[in-house]
Design a protein around this nucleic acid. Structure first.
Length: 774
RNA sequence: UGGCCCGUCGUCUAAUGGCAGGACAACCGGUUUUGGUCCGGUCGGUCGGGGUUCGAAUCCCUGCGGGCCAGCCA
């Protein structure tokens, strides 16, 4: 491969993906030379539009590769001819590009059909796959359930020759749909349902949008995906959490069919957003049922819709970064997405005025000099950008209906009888009369100028407006969440019944004339209302249609709603106090005869019951432990058991005990070193994982590195003083009451001594030294 | 019910076994010709119970809670 090797970004600010558990894996793989060029892939199925959840996967797949100077393939996972369509291929490419990512190569799983077919043949010849001729129902029944093992298919033991023959005839198109399938021969009793002889190929005599009628058989995801990764040289195959169970078949296949370096799969949690659904099937239903106006209806969570609505790609990438990448099942507040666009648009969007629900304001006493065009800044004082637009003022202007009230609530800063309010970029007008119809609806306001130049008077209220003669009529589409319910998928009710009837409100009002003369792609802030832009589909040219991208934060509206509906205190659900039931007796009862015998031996040796039960319950561990015990120079069953139970697991990490380089004898040696006082516990803990990985004799390592226990009390006191002197601020905080810092000092001293000091003594010494400084 | 994955402020997310931190939201105040922005501050969290350790969000056991798996979908 001609690529430059990947490297770990020098600085975290050089990254586009903020560090997470995936980048930690990548860092580690690079550091240990397991890979040298990072290759990822983004593998959408072209059966629907990409949505905000995909944005997370895209940013991760492409972002990680970019950060490490690797590459990313865009691979269409098109193995199911009945659902896929080239329309979606185009849409997906458009969306990925829009987000700002460039793929290294455009690939299709269907490109690999021949190769995959040959691999399947190889698997059959290896005896690892067979043609099953049971009906679909029979296969399902044979699979068993999560609690009962499956039963073998009567065709499971067909000869290799017969399997090859049948599979070749499947490929030749000799059989009807469903007559046979190819299955991996794994384990019908596996606790992982996916490993119960998963189906690899099915007969589907359907037209494929790319391969046409060339193939009557199609591979399934579990077969095609790992092998496509392997042929592309993917190093890190990132996918969402629901595929964790599939990792086992992924590894099973690539290990059998490919040589190292093999691709590895890592799973992260998918992005669930409040008030939205991100299931392609459900989105399809909304589109096909006409509940929305198409995949790009601005209420939809698709990238196409977000783009049409006016979201910027930067804001979506920022949002994805704020959400982060973890394995926890998370549900993200829609406010986080909105905050991300607002942050972006606040810097980008020129400020202009529009009235969405207009009522007339008649201004009396306006001097002739005040009429006509004025220059008004497009930017507020705090956005460091230049530019003005001509803004006409007339005696009759439109103002917002919600900016006038006959009987205002407390704290009101808008028009009400007697109240003076500033027109933005214009004069201060005192309200003389508020007109109201029989239903109480405000229909107009009359007022007089109190400050024609608009710069003498200090008033707290400022209101937006548009001069009537110059005003341009416009349609405004006020988009709101598609579902009022924060978790519309929580129950089984059909999604289409839950569509928020107010998710799209269309109103007619006015914008100032400058707005329609400017670049139609401009995202505007209509002051005090929100960010808008002209709908790219329905609102260009003569059609003046604005879509609201997002509202402004509105502190007043918040207070208003509190006034009208005081929040009910949610009753805190009482946590049922859970008693830890008699754990030990249960465990003891669960032991088989051999286990009980091991338990007895352990206890006879003086191992405390809790540890003894733990070890006895695991036959492999117990054998290993007894062997270690035999090897102990000065036998201390209790300490050995303590370490086997409490420290061994961490030392092992992901390494199974049988694969560890740590032998029972070296474990015994290590524990002995600790018990006889040769080394401190911290050193033993440091050494353990190292020996697990690399092997070696603890005593030799201690000798070689001079890790013997530090006995010199004066030296210790010196270290404590040095640490305290080096951290005067922390000492001050400690003395001021932040006692948690004691641990920090102890940690520093331990580090300085490479763990050779006795922690308890350090702890005592630190506290003493600190007390002396009080 | 079996296996696997996961539990940290309201939400999202940090923290080699060593100061539980950040963002969003909320609240209070300041600046402001946007009830916006910005600035300052406040509130607020390690799911429960045991164990190991000088020291546990982190390691072990256990209980509880959530998610995924019984497609010839991906």
């Amino acid at each position: 491969m001609s690529d430059a090797p990947s490297r770990i970004p020098a600085q975290d600010d050089d990254r586009i993906v903020t560090p997470n558990f995936v980048t930690a894996v990548v860092d580690d793989d690079l550091k240990h030379g397991r890979v040298d060029t990072i290759v990822t892939r983004f593998p959408p199925e072209p059966n629907g539009y990409l949505h905000i959840g995909h944005a997370k996967a895209i940013c991760l797949d492409f972002g990680v590769a970019e950060d490490y100077r690797g590459r990313t393939n865009l691979r269409f996972d098109d193995t199911n001819p009945t659902t896929e369509d080239p329309e979606y291929v185009d849409a997906i490419k458009r969306d990925v590009a829009w987000l700002g990512f460039t793929w290294s190569e455009e690939r299709y799983a269907s490109d690999y059909f021949e190769q995959l077919y040959q691999l399947a043949l190889r698997l059959i010849r290896m005896g690892d796959a067979y043609v099953d001729s049971q009906s679909e129902e029979a296969i399902r029944e044979g699979r068993g359930t999560v609690t009962e093992p499956g039963v073998a298919s009567p065709y499971r033991d067909r000869s290799v020759e017969e399997n090859v023959d049948l599979f070749e005839r499947m490929r030749a198109g000799e059989f009807a749909d469903g007559a046979h399938v190819l299955r991996a021969k794994i384990d019908m009793a596996s606790t992982n349902m996916i490993m119960r002889d998963p189906v690899l190929y099915r007969i589907r005599r359907a037209h494929h949008y790319r391969t046409g009628d060339a193939w009557p058989i199609y591979p399934l995801y579990d077969f095609a995906h790992p092998l496509s990764d392997a042929v592309e040289g993917v190093t890190h195959s990132l996918c969402t959490l629901e595929f964790v169970n599939n990792r086992e078949i992924y590894d099973w296949l690539v290990e059998r069919l490919f040589d190292a370096p093999l691709p590895h799969q890592y799973e992260f949690s998918r992005l669930a957003l409040d008030h939205t659904v991100v299931s392609k099937r459900k989105l399809l239903r909304l589109v096909q049922g006409g509940f929305v106006d198409g995949w790009d209806d601005p209420r939809m969570p698709t990238l196409a819709a977000l783009r049409r609505r006016g979201y910027t790609p930067e804001s979506i990438r920022e949002f994805v970064n704020r959400v982060g990448v973890t394995k926890t099942n998370a549900r993200t507040d829609l406010g986080l997405l909105e905050a991300s666009v607002r942050d972006d648009l606040n810097q980008q969007a020129p400020r202009v005025m529009a009235v969405l629900d207009p009522i007339p304001l008649r201004i009396e006493g306006l001097p002739a000099t005040a009429l006509g065009m004025h220059d008004a800044s497009l930017w507020p004082h705090d956005v460091p950008r230049e530019g003005t637009r001509p803004l006409p003022l007339e005696e009759q202007v439109w103002i917002e209906r919600s900016d006038a009230a006959l009987e205002p609530p407390k704290g009101w800063k808008r028009f009400a009888p007697g109240v003076a309010v500033r027109l933005r970029h214009g004069p201060v007008v005192q309200c003389d009369r508020v007109e109201v119809d029989e239903s109480g609806l405000v229909t107009g306001v009359t007022g007089h100028v109190v400050d024609p130049e608009g710069d003498g008077l200090k008033v707290s209220g400022v209101v937006h407006w548009v001069a009537q003669g110059a005003a341009v009529p416009a349609e405004f589409r006020l988009v709101d969440r598609l579902f009022a319910d924060p978790d519309p998928e929580a129950d089984e009710r059909d999604i289409t019944e839950k569509v928020n009837p107010d998710s799209l409100r269309v109103v007619r009002g006015y914008v100032e004339p400058y707005v329609v003369q400017a670049d139609a792609d401009t995202r505007w802030q209509f002051e005090r209302q929100g960010y808008f832009w002209r709908d790219p589909v329905d609102g260009r040219g003569d059609a003046v249609v604005f879509t609201r991208i997002v509202t402004l934060k509105d502190g007043w509206a918040r207070k208003e709603s509190e006034r009208s509906e005081p929040v009910k205190k949610p009753v805190a659900p009482k946590a049922e106090p859970s008693r830890s039931a008699g754990v030990e007796p249960d465990k003891v009862a669960a032991l088989d005869a051999a286990g009980a015998e091991r338990l007895a031996r352990l206890e006879a040796l003086g191992v405390p019951r809790g540890d003894a039960v733990r070890i006895a319950g695991d036959a492999d561990l117990a054998d290993w432990w007894f062997e270690a015990f035999e090897a102990m120079a000065t036998p201390d069953a209790s300490a050995l058991a303590n370490w086997a139970v409490n420290e061994l697991p961490r030392g092992l990490g992901d390494v199974p005990l049988r694969d560890a380089r740590l032998t029972p004898a070296s474990f015994a040696e290590l524990v002995t070193l600790l018990v006889d006082g040769t080394i401190a516990a911290a050193v033993a803990k440091d050494l353990l994982p190292e020996i697990v990985q690399a092997g070696g004799s603890p005593a030799a390592l201690v000798q070689e590195r001079g890790l013997g226990r530090l006995e010199d009390e004066a030296a210790l006191a010196g270290q404590v003083t040095a640490v305290l002197d080096a951290h005067p601020d922390e000492v001050a905080s400690y003395l001021a009451g932040k006692e948690g810092l004691a641990g920090f000092f102890v940690g520093q001293v331990m580090r300085a001594t490479k763990g050779r000091a006795d922690a308890a003594s350090v702890n005592a010494a630190v506290r003493e030294a600190l007390a002396a400084r009080r």
